[in-house]
Amino acid sequence: MTTAQPSFLLPSFSRHSYEVSDALQFEPLPSSVRASEPGETAREELLLKKLGAKGWGRVHHFRNFYQQGWGDGSGKALSPRALEAFFEFLKSVNFSEEVLPSVFLTDSGGLELCWEEDGNRPIQLEFSPSGIEVYREKTGTEKILALTESLELARSVN
């Protein structure tokens, strides 16, 4: 199946969009190795499997580098509740092989997941502390679900 590019996708640029900062580009030191918390490795693997290395890196960045008041001072840090619902969703969703979703941090501290179905019909999910905003162009869906509905949501997009 050929995946057509959505109309607002941009031509590929030579520059990588995600770059590890200079401070992070050093040889791993023993002190950078740490024991994971229970369940943490499973989540890291989930991010890698479903979002790829770039997606994993972006979520890591959002979790660790975007503090309260980021950006122009109004940006909110990543909501733990939104992140939990995001992981619940990722556990159950299956993306087709050619799809690698993009992940963004919203100004209100939510995580936004974007990809396309049927070629170029966007699906966008925003996991925020108050709920999951669902946008699906193919079905004309624009609605808000409770965070506890992330499992059902995953089933509906599979």
Partner: peptide
């Protein structure tokens, strides 16, 4: 702060 943020177990 930047160094603390880079280490999840310090943040």
């Amino acid at each position: 702060e930047q160094l603390r943020q880079q280490q999840p177990n310090l943040s």
